[in-house]
């Protein structure tokens, strides 16, 4: 394995509102090597998306450290961070501004970070995700869900990051489009040597995409296993075994 790209140690996220405190994430540690694809699985509410949001400082870190290329991250994150780490959100219907054309969505990050050759970069970004120039001046409401998610991927990649955080990138899409987007993500990772951290509740998706994965329940990491272990069903905890059998879908009870 190569150099460690992202390291999360003893991360805790606590949301406070008045007197109540919700411990969304507690004592989560993991590290991701450069070029690796790391999966986080768990049921709804297990805190898996919150881990990704904490990495980007969209959720408050109450304890623990996050290191990128062995350097601890400052809060608020410096501008450089956003050129290294980008995120693709779960719902492509909510992650694109309804009044901005695709052109504006893609040109804004370039303007913020002062990139040159913007026209060229926008056209190339659209081509890379399989959208032709005909889409460039459309509004999000003129696109389908899969096309929107491709735009979201293009937006994340236009700053040429090294790490891509994927928050259930296919769960809002129907099955045929899911495969399309997953293949696109696979191809882009191979071409650019990207590091992925992917959150999903779908073990099949994670097994397809990720080299290693972590299982979360009630805000805690309960098990880490490799793809090989997953394929061989060598899980150590009951919860993971239950998750595994659930992911095989409904099997009729063998009635005799």
């Amino acid at each position: 394995m190569g150099e460690v790209m992202l390291q999360v140690a003893d991360l805790a996220v606590t949301f406070r509102r008045g007197g109540d405190a919700v411990h969304a994430v507690q004592d989560v540690s993991f590290s991701v090597a450069q070029g690796e694809s790391f999966g986080i699985v768990g049921e709804s509410g297990s805190g898996k998306s919150t881990v990704l949001r904490a990495i980007c400082a969209l959720a408050p870190t109450s304890a623990g450290t996050i290191r990128l290329r062995d350097a601890p991250l400052a809060t608020p994150r410096p501008a450089r961070f956003f050129r290294q780490v980008q995120m693709v959100f779960q719902d492509p219907y909510a992650s694109l501004h309804p009044r901005h054309t695709i052109d504006r969505v893609l040109s804004e990050p370039l303007a913020i970070h002062g990139f040159d050759r913007r026209e060229e970069r926008i056209e190339r970004a659209l081509e890379e995700v399989g959208l032709g120039g005909g889409f460039r001046f459309r509004y999000p409401h003129q696109l389908s869900g899969g096309q929107r998610q491709r735009v979201a991927v293009a937006r994340a990649l236009i700053l040429e990051p090294e790490v891509l955080l994927l928050d259930e990138p296919t769960s809002a899409l129907d099955a045929s489009i899911q495969a399309e987007v997953l293949n696109l993500l696979d191809r882009l990772r191979a071409e650019r040597g990207l590091t992925y951290v992917m959150v999903s509740h779908d073990l099949a998706v994670v097994a397809h995409m990720c080299d290693r994965l972590m299982v979360m329940q009630h805000g805690r990491a309960i098990e880490e296993l490799s793809r090989a272990a997953l394929a061989a069903h060598r899980a150590e905890t009951d919860y993971t075994r239950k998750l595994l059998s659930a992911s095989e879908g409904y099997t009729p009870a063998e009635a005799s």
């Binding site: 969209l58 992650s95 501004h97 970070h113 979201a152």
Partner: peptide, 12 residues
């Protein structure tokens, strides 16, 4: 909403 988070993630 996610599109505001996305804008923040781009360093806006």
């Amino acid at each position: 909403s996610d599109f505001i988070s996305a804008a923040r993630l781009q360093g806006a």
